[in-house]
């Protein structure tokens, strides 16, 4: 464990808890894409299957439970909680995210480190996490409301990915044979997606304009 990874995990946990807490408190999910939240729930469900079979550390297991619990709770709120569901922007959140799931699954069947059930699903979860933010970014551009709820959420998610890249650089130089191309490439692609968002977010903030 290194400071970059710990900071990354904390930022990631904070991003999902901020979102869950806000939805719970103001009973609204305006501007939030439920499709992105469903993709994240699938990412965690397929990545943390080993939670029952292998034990890494208390920290690891605890964090997995936090991510699983928060992502499924957010989906539940947005889909089944009456007050929150009413504020969901169904007309604008139209990204066909099941195609993302399908293409990531096919890609995982083609490119993986080992062809075992757990390993293919784990690789699938990496590919899916890289593109999971797309429905949210599309919704953001459509509704143009970069209100604090989604802005902070995406900012923290981007921060978590950036810290993870620093973590991989650190581990590469401190641990022999720490080479995981798939993790690195998908992590880089995901961070680049955020970089694009940050560029426009910063511009809209600097010029005090609506996000375009």
């Amino acid at each position: 464990m290194n400071i970059f990874r710990l900071a990354g995990d904390m930022t990631h946990m904070f991003s999902v808890l901020v979102l869950l807490l806000k939805i719970h408190t103001i009973k609204s999910c305006a501007g939030v894409s439920v499709k992105t939240q469903e993709l994240y729930a699938i990412v965690f469900a397929t990545r943390y299957l080993d939670i029952f079979t292998s034990f890494v550390s208390i920290y690891n297991t605890f964090m997995k439970l936090v991510f699983l619990g928060s992502s499924f709770s957010i989906v539940w709120y947005m889909r089944y909680h009456k007050a929150v569901h009413r504020t969901y922007d169904r007309e604008q959140d139209t990204f066909r995210h099941w195609f993302l799931v399908l293409s990531c699954l096919l890609l995982a069947l083609l490119i993986h480190e080992k062809f075992t059930f757990l390993e293919v699903l784990w690789t699938f979860s990496l590919y899916l996490e890289a593109v999971a933010i797309l429905p949210q970014l599309v919704l953001l551009q459509r509704t143009r409301n970069i209100d604090n709820l989604t802005g902070q959420y995406i900012f923290l998610l981007g921060g978590y990915r950036g810290l993870y890249i620093l973590n991989w650089i650190y581990r590469y130089f401190t641990e022999p044979h720490f080479v995981h191309w798939i993790t690195w490439i998908t992590g880089l692609v995901q961070t680049l997606l955020y970089a694009d968002f940050f560029y426009y977010y910063f511009l809209s903030w600097k010029n005090n304009k609506k996000l375009n």
Binding site: R5, D9, D50, V56, M63, W122, H180
Partner: peptide, 10 residues
């Protein structure tokens, strides 16, 4: 065992 080593990250 190698699964854990490669996937000790969240």
């Amino acid at each position: 065992k190698e699964f854990d080593a490669a996937h000790d990250e969240l």
